[in-house]
Design a protein around this nucleic acid. Structure first.
Lengths: 189, 189
DNA sequence: TTCACTTTTTGCCAAATGGCAAATGGTTTC
DNA sequence: GAAACCATTTGCCATTTGGCAAAAAGTGAA
């Protein structure tokens, strides 16, 4: 919980009363390895903030191939549809690839926070924009560099992940086959 | 101008008075081919909406190579920093690659619209989120598919562009060399 | 038209990557 | 420990892509 507050305070000020409101509406949950946070086609009922662990976001492309779009790690706010109102049904899967801890807010409570705290929407928007920008920048690297460089970028960004998650996930994120990734790792050794 | 109003109305309702306010604050500008809309390092002073033409977004990577991050075409709202407030200095270049027409709003006027029209920020946020999502999805395709497929996606998305802009821009967007792209086009013919 | 300049295509070869299958290594279950 | 199962590495070869330079095609100015 504290992690979430601390994170939010980077984007705007909150007084004690407001912080208490947020705390009172939050719930801590844990996901076991391989458990899903979202599943494509199922309505999303909560807003989540990852405090520990890593989640993998993937989808199925037009050929039915599974594609890892990105990994999301600590200090990331998982909003849902455009503005977290109404029902949202994602087309992606969000799966915990390590044990994860999240601070979550049910839609109704989130709305109450929005309605009560002036400036809350603005803060959330700032966070959302920052996250989007980072995602696009990371994706850009994945397009313009060769596979070994892409893998190194991945290692820089997720140093603890390289040896903890299936190679196939990483390969799919980098846009190469598992065999190629295995050979790249061999060369680095 | 009408194009902008029409676009905005897809995301929320506005009454005549509100529409008139927006119209009164807008300016139409044109960019000649190759002219810059943004330049890295220069403060952005306006919010723009493209009604005609195509703009290329590029940056220089750590090796000093120019990389085309994406093309933006009609009906795209070019916001600046997280919430279009204060001064924002981009690290990207936005260059018109065809003649372009834009509806623009100066920061001060944009703020007045925000302050006057209740729900405006919400509409803008919806637009922004939609645009971000589309960008990420397009980038995803660029990572997971082979070069010919990527080029076909590009043609689908920007059918009029293929023969109007330098090959090097397209190649850089697709993450391949110009020679490779030339060969891919040869195979398609 | 001719010249100068830029963009695109092509040839050649090296390097990177994919596809497939077998071998190896690790983990879990009984 | 043995067997079954899954993940990773490796070999082999075909295909794709890159790097470089020259040729060809296109463009604009005089």
């Amino acid at each position: 919980m504290e992690k979430f507050i601390e994170y939010v305070l980077q984007f705007g000020n909150l007084n004690k009363q407001q912080i208490d409101l947020i705390k009172s509406k939050s719930t801590e949950i844990e996901l076991r390895k391989d458990e899903f946070y979202w599943e494509a086609g199922k309505i999303v009922r909560q807003i989540g903030f990852i405090t520990d662990g890593v989640i993998r976001v993937y989808y199925y492309d037009s050929k039915g191939e599974e594609n890892t779009r990105y990994f999301i790690d600590e200090n990331l706010l998982i909003l849902d549809g455009p503005n977290s109102q109404g029902n949202y049904t994602p087309s992606e899967y969000l799966q915990a690839i390590t044990g994860c801890k999240l601070t979550v807010f049910y839609k109704k409570d989130w709305k109450e926070i929005s309605d009560t705290i002036i400036g809350w929407e603005n803060i959330v928007q700032k966070i959302n924009n920052k996250q989007h920008t980072e995602k696009i920048e990371r994706r850009s690297i994945l397009v313009s560099q060769d596979a070994a460089t892409r893998y190194n970028e991945f290692i820089d960004k997720f140093p603890t992940l390289a040896n903890r998650v299936p190679l196939s996930y990483i390969a799919s994120y980098l846009g190469i086959t598992q065999s190629s990734l295995s050979r790249i790792r061999k060369n680095i050794r």
